[in-house]
Design a protein around this nucleic acid. Structure first.
Lengths: 200, 200
DNA sequence: GTCTATATAACGATAGAC
DNA sequence: GTCTATCGTTATATAGAC
């Protein structure tokens, strides 16, 4: 019983924080979403900031872990790109508000999250860096630094979610068309990336 | 005199809204930033929402206009890609918080901005769509739909700004290293994109 | 653990003097 | 147009009964 209430609150908080951000979120909305009395939020999580921090830590570490699982794996480079695109876009389909939430909060209040981020101690995986450097020196791919390689990969996967409303608006898509766009992208994006990497 | 105060307020409001978002922004912070009395905000702009709307409209239309200037121009496709990368990254260097601001607000409150967006009536430029379709049918580039072409272009330019804090954190960059990363990217990104577009 | 009622604080907004 | 003082609302947080 005890566990269940706490979990309901946490799930509701994640949903509301993801969608509204810290300042836009209302404790009342979280309580309503959890179908629970507002004072329970304080009973279980003391205050809004603590609740937020737990949600952010969970969301951030979850996404980082998932991403790094793929990037750290022992797979050939091009295969890894394919796996990454599929896994990452799949993950974001289930958590569409996650990236903009994380980016907005990191941007709005970087010093507030600094300790948390140091604690999680995120680094680009060594094995991937070696793969990239080797592919470059073997002239399998164009000369590119690991940071650019990774940023390109992330950019192309994340942007359709960060800019969803923009895309929908500019290209006049309804929700179904947007879903089809994503589905096609999940299939075709790795070809574009691998082409871009291969020397001309 | 009158004009000057209004402008000071507007500039301050843009800065604070860009950085904090609508809910995170404080009228007092805007007043402090403008070095002006808080009640002046209401005198000139009536209330927070109206002030925000003017800022958002200005920011959004400014960026859209600039982007479309390049995309609508009468330049060969690959040249256009190069111009776009340089212009757009340059614009974002001057307004680093602009994209995350726009995306976050569009995401948090899409129905609130719907009217504004319809009013601005943004569409992908017809000339660019024709160029892409022609390049595809001439087998100059891989089969790609205009929406994917444009999304790829935007993704790769925008993400380094949206994810700045993330990039800085994961790759342990100081500010100077980040600036160098951007500078290099502005030079090299179009090569990556054009490679990706060319048939293998 | 859960509820109702209420305190406390923050913030947007306004009134009114100058 | 600009300032000070203050109102009214909303949101977070707590007290206390059950």
């Amino acid at each position: 019983m005890e566990k269940e209430t706490e979990e309901k609150i946490f799930d509701a908080a994640r949903k509301v924080f993801h969608h509204r951000g810290f300042y836009g979120a209302r404790m009342q909305e979280i309580a309503d979403e959890a179908d629970i009395n507002k004072s329970m939020l304080h009973y279980y999580f003391r205050n809004k900031e603590k609740l937020f921090e737990e949600v952010f830590r969970d969301s951030f570490s979850r996404i980082v872990r998932k991403v790094f699982e793929v990037l750290k794996s022992d797979t050939p480079l091009f295969q890894k790109v394919e796996n990454f695109v599929e896994t990452y876009i799949g993950l974001l389909e289930e958590n569409p508000y996650l990236p903009i939430f994380v980016f907005h909060e990191m941007n709005t209040n970087p010093e507030h999250l600094k300790g948390l981020l140091q604690e999680l101690n995120v680094r680009p995986p060594e094995i991937l860096i070696q793969q990239i450097d080797k592919a470059v020196s073997d002239v399998e791919i164009i000369p590119i630094q690991p940071i650019d390689f990774i940023v390109n990969l992330l950019s192309l996967c994340v942007f359709p979610f960060v800019g969803k409303q923009m895309i929908i608006t500019v290209f006049r898509l309804d929700n179904q068309q947007y879903q089809e766009f994503l589905k096609r992208r999940k299939k075709e994006l790795s070809t574009f990336i691998i082409n871009g990497l291969k020397a001309g």
